[in-house]
Amino acid sequence: MRFMMLMIPKGYESAAPGTMPEADAVAAMMKYNEALQNAGVLLALDGLHPPSMGARVHFAGGKPRVTDGPFAEAKEVLGGYWMIDVKSREEAIAWAMRCPASDEEIIEIRQVQEMADFPEDVQQAAAGFDEMRQSARDVP
C-alpha cells in the first residue's frame, strides 16, 4: 500500500521566496532518502518551494479566485513529500520515525486511496465514467 509522508516545517508558511534548507540538513536527509531507496520502498519524493512563491485558488461563491502567497490564514504548509510503498501503516510510521527531522518539523502520514478502497457504489460510478470515456473515443 502507498503512503504519502508529508513534511510540515513550522515557519515555512512565512518563509521568504527562494528559502532553501541548510546543507548539513540536506546531507542528513539524503542519507535517510538512501535508506528508503535501499529498502525498495521509495516511489517518489520532492521538496516544495515556500508558499510565498505559490498561489491559492479559492472557490468560495462558486467562482475561482486567486490569491498569491504567502497566505496569511495558513498555519501549517507542506515543505515536501515522500511517496512510499510499504506493507502496513505501522511500517510507514516506523519509516517516518527514522527521519532526521528538526524540532520544527512534523511528518503527517496519509494512505493513498486505491480504487478498491472505494465503496461499491463509487466504484460503479467510476466504472460508468470509464465506459463513457471509452465509447467517446474510437478505439480499435
Partner: peptide, 8 residues
C-alpha cells in the same frame, strides 16, 4: 501484520 513496523 507488522505492529512494530520492524519486519522490513
Amino acid at each position: 501484520h507488522d505492529r512494530c513496523g520492524l519486519a522490513h
